[in-house]
Design a protein around this nucleic acid. Structure first.
Lengths: 122, 122
DNA sequence: GAACTATATTCCTAAGAAGGAATACAGATA
DNA sequence: TATCTGTATTCCTTCTTAGGAATATAGTTC
């Protein structure tokens, strides 16, 4: 994975928020919508952008698409994601996103391992 | 300095090469031209892009414009530049640039502290 | 002050990206 | 099969960017 390609993915505020959240584990699209407060198209398109470039991976689970960071990230990606998480700590927006994520985790059924189907997500 | 702005500066191959070289110390435009093998306009415009966004600082020295990394970078910038240098180590292009820089350093008069004027640069 | 050197800026064109509205699609449920 | 839910894609418009050619500018040297 080329370094420039990584930075191209990082140079949009929405994508940074998505990636920051993904640092905590896989999430479905409606979670992102809920936390960022952005329209579905926007979220979905940015996730597609990241997916095409290999910065996230997807897996379908019933109606939901679960996005996560790559299982085997390149060294460069790993380093840059770590750097991002680190920088995000000092920023109000990213911190607020993480706080919202925590709240959702309590309200929603855990999705990553379980999930099968049925339960409403958001 | 906003994180996104930093990444916007990093998402171009030429700018990455410039910043990687600047990790070694300040340089004038003709050095960049020589090392990257790119036309003057291109170099100059990318340096302007970086300057406007605060990723580099300039100082005139006679005919030459000496570009360097900010004397007081923000935390985020410092972290990301460190990450860049680190990643660049593993990449042939950036390594070749640094090698060329070393060669030039032998052939050129040192510019950073001395310099006054007179001597031809490149 | 004329010529020269190093660098910046302007003008233009082509390409890419972001955002929204509308629509398509896949799987689940009734 | 019809409908519903979650998500993706298409179409369109607007904005930003990169790159090159030509030109401008500031400082230097003769």
């Amino acid at each position: 994975m080329e370094l420039v390609k990584i930075y191209e993915c990082l140079c949009d505020a929405t994508r940074l928020r998505l990636l920051n959240l993904l640092g905590q584990g896989p999430l479905c699209v409606c979670h992102f919508q809920e936390i960022l407060g952005e329209p579905q198209v926007k979220i979905s398109k940015h996730l597609a952008y990241l997916r095409i470039r290999g910065l996230v991976e997807v897996e379908r689970q019933g109606n939901w698409m679960i996005y996560g960071l790559p299982a085997k990230p390149t060294r460069e990606l790993k380093k840059n994601l770590a750097c991002l998480q680190d920088c995000a700590k000092e920023n109000a927006i990213y911190r607020r996103d993480l706080a919202r994520l925590k709240k959702l985790d309590l309200a929603c059924a855990p999705l990553a391992p379980a999930g099968k189907s049925g339960a409403k997500c958001c």
